[in-house]
């Protein structure tokens, strides 16, 4: 099978996962461009892909690098790029976290708590929690040890709980 066919299939299979990851990672601006760039990059670098690993893990790694580049390009911190939930905006017909979370107060608070975390915590929550990667895959994407993923995820959850408790106290 030729590589463009394979990448096209991967896009069918994992396009939404990549899209979701990028939305949570960089906000809702130009997400489809970034997703496209991710698959273009995969097409370009297909020969370097080690077949024994999961394509989704590989694609998420590319997406993560693209997201980092994008944030650098924008020159602002991740949090600043996230579109606030209360902001009225024209949202296309597809689901974005902003649109969905507007409907659910609990989700909105949780989302905000995640955004306020430090980078390491956010990364691990996004991959392990939201994207549902295994500890092994999360470790592979982030280049960490599995025990680091476990402990960071634990601490990130603790930090989120503190955030949510703070909100409730207010």
């Amino acid at each position: 099978m030729c590589k463009n066919k394979i990448i096209s299939e991967w896009f069918e299979l994992y396009g939404d996962d990549i899209y979701n990851y990028v939305v949570y990672r960089v906000g809702s601006m130009d997400v489809d461009d970034i997703v496209q760039e991710v698959f273009m990059k995969a097409l370009q670098k297909y020969e370097t892909f080690r077949k024994e690993s999961n394509p989704k893990t590989w694609l998420i790694s590319i997406a993560r690098n693209k997201a980092i580049d994008e944030m650098r390009k924008r020159g602002t911190k991740w949090r600043k790029n996230m579109m606030p939930f209360h902001q009225k905006c024209e949202i296309p017909d597809h689901q974005t976290p902003e649109k969905v979370l507007q409907m659910n107060e609990e989700h909105r608070e949780l989302y905000q708590a995640i955004q306020s975390l430090k980078t390491n915590y956010r990364e691990v929550i996004l991959l392990r929690g939201i994207e549902g990667f295994s500890i092994k895959d999360t470790a592979s994407i982030l280049g960490w040890s599995e025990s680091k993923v476990r402990s960071t995820y634990y601490r990130a959850c603790k930090a989120i709980k503190n955030q949510l408790r703070g909100h409730m106290d207010e």
Partner: peptide
């Protein structure tokens, strides 16, 4: 963990999907 997992998932619209797929295929 369950709450985090239950956060809504964003997904591509049909239009976006078609457009990106076409671009990927043309990129060859």
């Amino acid at each position: 963990h369950k709450k985090i997992q239950s956060l809504p998932k964003a997904h591509l619209s049909h239009k976006q999907r078609t457009s990106i797929k076409r671009n990927i295929e043309q990129n060859t």
